[in-house]
Design a protein around this nucleic acid. Structure first.
Lengths: 311, 311
DNA sequence: AAATCTGTTTGACAAAAGCAATTAAAAAAC
DNA sequence: GTTTTTTAATTGCTTTTGTCAAACAGATTT
């Protein structure tokens, strides 16, 4: 992939900036007679669940073997780690933190938290959240293992000001990017939202939002159009958050809501191009009840109707 | 301000993560026999436009005086900096980079850019942009001087899929937060967008967006409602970006567009509560042509109409 | 003019980190 | 089945980085 020079500049400047900041944030290490490298070793030893060896640390942390050896030795004399000889290979030792080592790490993290708190103290609560979000984004993009887990996702069932616009934004931009839909599609979504908002009634309508922090990353809704049938709409999960089961969770919530509100059936309109979605619908008991080829949103699409009986 | 423990955790983890990353990004320094501190001194000397002294560096970079003295000495013997005795104070020296020093800094930054490029290489272009945006946000929140400048803002006059939704989102959430409007307001915005999108015609309608990276942070539009008059709508600048003249710039662009399209007058509807906006309108030649007290969007508001003749 | 203060330098030293040689066990080659 | 080579870890030696306290010299105050 080609590299955007503007991005390179920003990353370099950020690095420069963060180097100064790190100085401040890592100051508490000195109080515990630990070097940054030593800390990293300690952390790695805790996080590495299967047996860790010196070689692994060298490879993972990129630190000199001799230096590491000395660090480990002092750890051992201070009873922060224990070594166990490998039965496979007489040269290697399995390393693990002792309770005392864990304890120290906790203390260190407490100290770190205090430094951080001091840094955050002058910031407003929104700014704090924005900061955490941005940092999470950075980590998420750069590291493979800082993957967002389903635990980070929360769900919300009230519609707050700004939500409708954001869902519309997600639909407009994502379908344009992923499926090539034109502006007419967003116009259509806009219309559906206008109709919905004008007649919003929580006894028959229900919106569900999947959130990451204060950011909407998935949506679904059931809209009671008659006494018997409810229409499912705005089913979407942001591509960065797919594969975490969020779609299934939203769908389940929506179906349950429809049942609770005593609707007899749910129907929805989608296109055959939405393979992931239609697969999920079928898996959840929906059946195709109609299809129609037609020019839509700048493309030639197959509109499909699905429905499910709830009783 | 109280500190959010979740945020503290994320910042700590981020710091932890970045410590490892910094190792990688700063590796090129060793090739030039420079310590991180030495680099910071060099950068500071370049960026500090007025004469820099050792004391200033100590205060700004938080580095030990003795250590700094030595760093500066080696810089001097390597002809990277030159010293000039102060006429005010015989103890202090004014320090500045020599051309050779500047040159070295450039080489270093080139090296840094290469490291960064390597890091960015596996990322997609959107991810790169998202990364830069997030880093900018972090710096922006944490440092006072990394303020966003007007230079970082670009303007766009085409309406892409997703834009309408995002503008609606901004209106809905910001007016709710800042003015206490309820969901009816977003419904209203949704209606205006639906009407607009259905009949969008670039010969009479024009949207302007202020962008920070790929994020919309301000908007305005003129919508030709008759042959003579055009309505101005969706005038908003995100609070984080106010005071940079973005509002004025948007307004000017909108008025110019209306003139170009040969409209004879512009009118707009706002509320008396929007003091910043109405002040700007008046400053730009708009005059109030009507007002009406009425319950709107959950509040008792004064709706105002402004207009300006273009010929 | 003496005392104090301030900006910078120097000396002594400790901690952090890197490099090369060494040891011992494992794997590969003969 | 022994020898050679490779690999994991350690040890000795060195450089670099950074800290602390004392010294110095010019400025400021008393």
């Amino acid at each position: 992939m080609s590299v955007n020079p503007e991005v390179v500049r920003e990353v370099s400047e950020f690095n420069n900036y963060y180097n100064s900041l790190a100085e401040l944030l890592n100051r508490h290490l000195a109080d515990n007679n630990l070097s940054l490298s030593a800390l990293r070793v300690l952390v790695k030893l805790r996080d590495e669940e299967d047996q860790c060896t010196a070689g692994k640390l060298i490879a993972n942390l990129g630190i000199d073997g001799g230096y590491l050896s000395r660090i480990l030795k002092t750890f051992e004399t201070n009873q922060l780690i224990s070594k166990r000889k490998s039965t496979m290979d007489g040269r290697t030792w399995y390393l693990q933190l002792t309770p005392k080592g864990r304890k120290l790490l906790e203390i260190l993290e407490e100290g770190s938290a205090q430094q951080v708190s001091q840094l955050l103290e002058p910031l407003g609560s929104e700014q704090q959240l924005a900061l955490a979000g941005a940092m999470k984004t950075v980590r998420h993009i750069l590291s493979d293992d800082a993957k967002i887990s389903a635990d980070d996702i929360t769900f919300r069932r009230d519609l707050q000001p700004g939500d409708a616009g954001f869902i519309m934004h997600m639909h407009g931009s994502l379908y344009a990017k992923e499926a090539g839909y034109n502006l007419e599609y967003e116009t259509h979504i806009c219309k559906t939202f206008y109709e919905f908002l004008e007649a919003y009634n929580s006894s028959k309508d229900q919106v569900f939002l999947a959130m990451h922090g204060n950011q909407i990353i998935g949506s679904i809704a059931v809209l009671g159009h008659s006494r018997y049938a409810t229409q499912m709409r705005w089913f979407l999960v942001h591509p960065d958050y797919r594969g975490l089961g969020i779609g299934q969770r939203l769908l389940t919530e929506a179906v349950n809501a429809a049942k609770e509100k005593l609707f007899q059936k749910i129907y929805l309109i989608t296109t055959a191009q939405q393979v992931a979605a239609t697969t999920l619908f079928k898996k959840n008991g929906f059946r195709k009840s109609g299809e129609k080829h037609m020019p839509m949103w700048g493309l030639q699409l197959t509109e499909e109707r699905y429905e499910i009986d709830l009783i």
